[in-house]
Protein backbone atom coordinates (compact mmCIF):
# COMPACT_ATOMS: atom_id res chain seq x y z
CA UNK A 1 0.00 0.00 0.00
CA UNK A 2 2.75 2.38 0.99
CA UNK A 3 4.64 1.49 -2.19
CA UNK A 4 1.58 2.27 -4.30
CA UNK A 5 1.22 5.78 -2.90
CA UNK A 6 4.92 6.44 -3.35
CA UNK A 7 4.69 5.42 -6.97
CA UNK A 8 1.80 7.81 -7.49
CA UNK A 9 3.56 10.68 -5.75
CA UNK A 10 6.67 10.11 -7.85
CA UNK A 11 4.61 9.94 -11.02
CA UNK A 12 3.18 13.38 -10.29
CA UNK A 13 6.45 14.97 -9.13
CA UNK A 14 8.32 13.64 -12.12
CA UNK A 15 6.01 15.64 -14.36
CA UNK A 16 5.78 18.77 -12.20
CA UNK A 17 8.15 19.19 -9.27
CA UNK A 18 6.60 22.51 -8.30
CA UNK A 19 3.43 20.93 -6.97
CA UNK A 20 3.40 21.01 -3.20
CA UNK A 21 2.44 18.19 -0.87
CA UNK A 22 -1.03 19.66 -0.33
CA UNK A 23 -1.81 19.75 -4.06
CA UNK A 24 -0.45 16.26 -4.59
CA UNK A 25 -2.48 14.99 -1.65
CA UNK A 26 -5.68 16.45 -3.08
CA UNK A 27 -4.92 14.98 -6.53
CA UNK A 28 -4.47 11.54 -4.98
CA UNK A 29 -7.24 11.84 -2.43
CA UNK A 30 -4.73 11.37 0.43
CA UNK A 31 -4.01 13.13 3.67
CA UNK A 32 -1.74 16.17 3.19
CA UNK A 33 0.47 15.47 6.23
CA UNK A 34 0.91 11.87 5.22
CA UNK A 35 1.87 12.89 1.70
CA UNK A 36 4.36 15.44 3.00
CA UNK A 37 5.86 12.77 5.26
CA UNK A 38 6.24 10.35 2.34
CA UNK A 39 7.94 12.98 0.20
CA UNK A 40 10.24 13.82 3.06
CA UNK A 41 11.10 10.17 3.60
CA UNK A 42 11.79 9.66 -0.09
CA UNK A 43 14.12 12.65 -0.08
CA UNK A 44 16.00 11.16 2.88
CA UNK A 45 16.18 7.76 1.20
CA UNK A 46 17.61 9.39 -1.90
CA UNK A 47 14.68 8.24 -4.01
CA UNK A 48 13.91 11.87 -4.77
CA UNK A 49 17.37 13.20 -5.48
CA UNK A 50 16.62 16.78 -6.40
CA UNK A 51 14.25 19.28 -8.01
CA UNK A 52 15.72 20.90 -11.07
CA UNK A 53 14.45 23.31 -13.67
CA UNK A 54 14.37 21.83 -17.11
CA UNK A 55 15.99 24.30 -19.48
CA UNK A 56 16.25 24.51 -23.23
CA UNK A 57 19.65 26.22 -23.40
CA UNK A 58 19.41 26.39 -27.16
CA UNK A 59 16.86 29.16 -26.71
CA UNK A 60 19.36 31.24 -24.76
CA UNK A 61 22.53 32.84 -26.10
CA UNK A 62 24.55 30.08 -24.48
CA UNK A 63 26.94 28.70 -27.07
CA UNK A 64 28.28 25.72 -25.19
CA UNK A 65 27.78 22.25 -26.58
CA UNK A 66 26.79 18.88 -25.18
CA UNK A 67 28.89 15.78 -25.64
CA UNK A 68 28.16 12.10 -25.20
CA UNK A 69 31.13 9.77 -24.85
CA UNK A 70 31.18 6.02 -25.33
CA UNK A 71 33.76 4.48 -23.08
CA UNK A 72 35.34 1.05 -23.24
CA UNK A 73 37.10 0.00 -20.04
CA UNK A 74 38.92 -2.97 -18.58
CA UNK A 75 37.31 -3.88 -15.26
CA UNK A 76 39.73 -4.84 -12.47
CA UNK A 77 39.54 -8.05 -10.47
CA UNK A 78 37.48 -7.55 -7.31
CA UNK A 79 36.46 -4.01 -8.18
CA UNK A 80 34.20 -4.55 -11.19
CA UNK A 81 32.82 -1.47 -12.86
CA UNK A 82 31.80 0.48 -9.78
CA UNK A 83 35.32 1.60 -8.86
CA UNK A 84 35.94 2.81 -12.41
CA UNK A 85 32.57 4.53 -12.42
CA UNK A 86 33.50 6.42 -9.30
CA UNK A 87 36.68 7.67 -10.92
CA UNK A 88 34.53 9.11 -13.68
CA UNK A 89 31.47 10.48 -11.91
CA UNK A 90 33.50 12.37 -9.35
CA UNK A 91 34.48 14.82 -12.08
CA UNK A 92 32.15 17.81 -11.89
CA UNK A 93 32.27 17.95 -15.70
CA UNK A 94 30.24 14.73 -15.85
CA UNK A 95 26.51 15.28 -15.97
CA UNK A 96 25.33 11.68 -16.31
CA UNK A 97 27.00 8.32 -16.27
CA UNK A 98 25.45 5.00 -17.23
CA UNK A 99 26.86 1.48 -17.34
CA UNK A 100 25.64 -0.05 -20.58
CA UNK A 101 25.00 -3.42 -22.11
CA UNK A 102 26.19 -3.89 -25.68
CA UNK A 103 29.22 -2.74 -27.64
CA UNK A 104 30.77 -0.46 -25.03
CA UNK A 105 30.72 -0.07 -21.27
CA UNK A 106 29.92 3.47 -20.14
CA UNK A 107 27.94 6.34 -21.55
CA UNK A 108 29.32 9.59 -20.21
CA UNK A 109 27.29 12.73 -20.79
CA UNK A 110 29.19 15.92 -20.13
CA UNK A 111 27.84 19.18 -18.86
CA UNK A 112 27.56 21.76 -21.58
CA UNK A 113 30.98 23.21 -22.29
CA UNK A 114 33.04 24.72 -25.08
CA UNK A 115 34.64 22.47 -27.70
CA UNK A 116 38.01 23.29 -26.20
CA UNK A 117 36.98 22.31 -22.69
CA UNK A 118 35.46 19.06 -23.92
CA UNK A 119 38.57 18.14 -25.91
CA UNK A 120 40.72 18.87 -22.88
CA UNK A 121 38.55 16.84 -20.53
CA UNK A 122 38.40 13.78 -22.79
CA UNK A 123 42.08 13.72 -23.68
CA UNK A 124 43.61 14.62 -20.37
CA UNK A 125 41.09 13.41 -17.77
CA UNK A 126 39.07 10.54 -19.19
CA UNK A 127 41.38 8.82 -21.66
CA UNK A 128 44.22 8.71 -19.17
CA UNK A 129 42.36 6.69 -16.53
CA UNK A 130 44.21 3.36 -16.31
CA UNK A 131 41.22 1.14 -17.00
CA UNK A 132 39.93 3.17 -19.97
CA UNK A 133 40.70 1.43 -23.23
CA UNK A 134 39.04 3.70 -25.71
CA UNK A 135 36.73 6.72 -26.02
CA UNK A 136 34.40 7.83 -28.79
CA UNK A 137 33.11 11.37 -28.40
CA UNK A 138 29.84 12.46 -30.01
CA UNK A 139 28.64 16.03 -30.15
CA UNK A 140 24.90 16.74 -29.84
CA UNK A 141 23.76 18.78 -32.83
CA UNK A 142 20.08 19.34 -31.96
CA UNK A 143 18.08 18.33 -28.92
CA UNK A 144 14.59 17.47 -30.12
CA UNK A 145 13.20 15.96 -26.99
CA UNK A 146 14.45 15.47 -23.47
CA UNK A 147 12.81 14.16 -20.30
CA UNK A 148 9.64 13.47 -22.25
CA UNK A 149 9.40 17.10 -23.35
CA UNK A 150 9.59 18.27 -26.94
CA UNK A 151 12.05 21.12 -27.45
CA UNK A 152 10.82 21.95 -30.90
CA UNK A 153 7.19 22.92 -30.47
CA UNK A 154 5.75 24.02 -27.18
CA UNK A 155 2.35 22.46 -26.65
CA UNK A 156 -0.41 24.80 -27.76
CA UNK A 157 -4.07 24.43 -26.86
CA UNK A 158 -5.78 24.41 -30.23
CA UNK A 159 -9.28 23.87 -28.87
CA UNK A 160 -12.02 26.45 -29.12
CA UNK A 161 -12.71 28.41 -25.93
CA UNK A 162 -16.10 26.87 -25.21
CA UNK A 163 -17.59 23.71 -26.73
CA UNK A 164 -20.57 21.58 -25.71
Amino acid sequence: MEKEIRKKILGILEKDARLNAKDIASMLGCDADETAAEINAMEKENIICGYHAFINWDKTDDEKISALIELKVMPQRGNGFDKIAEKIYQFPEVESLYLMSGGYDFTVILKKASMKEIAFFVSSKLAVIDEVQSTATHIVLVRYKDHGTSFIEPHKDLRMVVTP
Binding site: R159, M160, V162, T163
Partner: peptide
Protein backbone atom coordinates in the same frame (compact mmCIF):
# COMPACT_ATOMS: atom_id res chain seq x y z
CA UNK B 1 -18.61 31.58 -26.49
CA UNK B 2 -19.13 34.90 -28.25
CA UNK B 3 -18.15 36.88 -25.15
CA UNK B 4 -15.21 34.65 -24.27
CA UNK B 5 -13.93 34.74 -27.81
CA UNK B 6 -13.55 38.52 -27.63
CA UNK B 7 -11.39 38.45 -24.51
CA UNK B 8 -7.63 37.99 -24.68
CA UNK B 9 -5.91 35.35 -22.53
CA UNK B 10 -9.04 33.71 -21.25
CA UNK B 11 -8.50 30.73 -19.01
CA UNK B 12 -11.15 28.45 -20.33
CA UNK B 13 -12.61 25.58 -18.37
CA UNK B 14 -15.43 25.47 -20.85
CA UNK B 15 -14.33 22.86 -23.30
CA UNK B 16 -16.09 19.53 -23.79
CA UNK B 17 -13.16 17.69 -25.28
CA UNK B 18 -9.93 16.11 -24.03
CA UNK B 19 -6.79 18.23 -23.72
Amino acid sequence: FDIANEIQDVISLGVGEPD
